[in-house]
């Protein structure tokens, strides 16, 4: 038998059971004379065992009820989520307004208590920062990725800063805000005329589904909605049609970002 030569690739083939018994035998003989390769293969094998051991318990655990339900229940039943999706499904609040736009107030009368609370904070935050000249945002849009990553992490929601260029608005940056003991994110947008728009995001516990709703306070109009357990509000002095278009665009972009 002519001694064959083996390569590192063969180590993987052998480990993964992709080698004929004859080849495997020849490899083992070869490895006896190639201690370095033998050690390497031993190491790969050891790492694989650790990998197998790490989550082995999951295979013997009983199947969580959550998953059994999916298979037994009516598919149209409301879905339960733990993290990610639920994180996406945090409350989103869109507050939109020209510089110095005012408008809050009559939210208090709304039957949508949870929505109202965060919408209220969103509008206050908007009024506070949209009027700023120098310190509108904490992190500017030139650090967009960092901004989104940072706010996502702090708020606990994979955020999206929607592209509002169709409506003529550009992201200028964002900031982190406190909201009833939670972290909230605010993204600020501005158009060519200097009118500003802000997107405010917090996580909410409650779930509801609403269509777009609208309120007008002074010269400011707001559109807001809730979907699953997140809500959005858009407010501003921009024309009603523009506001609705922005609200619709943001709504769609957040939906698109949810994991299908």
């Amino acid at each position: 038998m002519t001694p064959r030569n083996f390569t590192e690739q063969d180590l993987h083939l052998a480990l993964d059971g992709e080698m004929s018994p004859e080849d495997r035998q020849a490899l083992d003989l070869w490895l006896d004379n190639n201690p370095e390769m033998k050690a390497r293969m031993g190491r790969f094998s050891e790492d694989r065992d650790r990998l197998r051991a790490a989550n082995a318990h999951l295979v013997s655990e009983p199947i969580p009820e959550r998953f059994q339900r999916i298979l037994t229940q009516d598919p149209s039943a409301p879905r339960l989520r733990t993290s990610w999706r639920q994180l996406v499904a945090a409350s989103l609040v869109f507050a939109l307004g020209a510089i110095g736009g005012y408008g809050v107030a009559s939210w208090r009368q709304s039957p949508l208590a949870p929505l109202k609370a965060f919408a209220d904070s969103a509008i206050q935050a908007h009024d506070m920062y949209a009027a700023e000249k120098l310190h509108v945002v904490e992190v500017k849009a030139d650090q967009r990725d960092h901004l989104i990553g940072w706010l996502s992490k702090r708020v606990g929601v994979p955020l999206v800063a929607p592209d509002l260029s169709t409506q003529g608005y550009e992201l200028i940056g964002g900031r982190l805000l406190p909201d009833a003991g939670k972290a909230a994110a605010q993204f600020m947008y501005q158009n060519a005329d200097g009118d500003r728009v802000s997107l405010y995001v917090t996580r909410e516990q409650e779930r509801a589904q609403t269509g777009f709703k609208s309120i007008v306070e002074g010269s400011t109009r707001a559109y807001y909605w809730m979907d699953d357990d997140y809500g959005c509000a858009v407010a501003g002095v921009a024309p009603q049609k523009t506001l609705l278009s922005i609200a619709d665009s943001a709504y769609r972009q957040y939906l698109a970002a949810e994991i299908r």
């Binding site: 989550n55 959550r66 998953f67 733990t82 993290s83 990610w84």
Partner: peptide, 30 residues
Amino acid sequence: LAEIPRLRRYARGLARDQDRADDLVQDTLE
């Protein structure tokens, strides 16, 4: 249903975080 335990193990390897991994299982089943 019988594949769920393996799917959970696979998901946990892919995503690690327990909640994310279980969401991945749920997405897969749906």
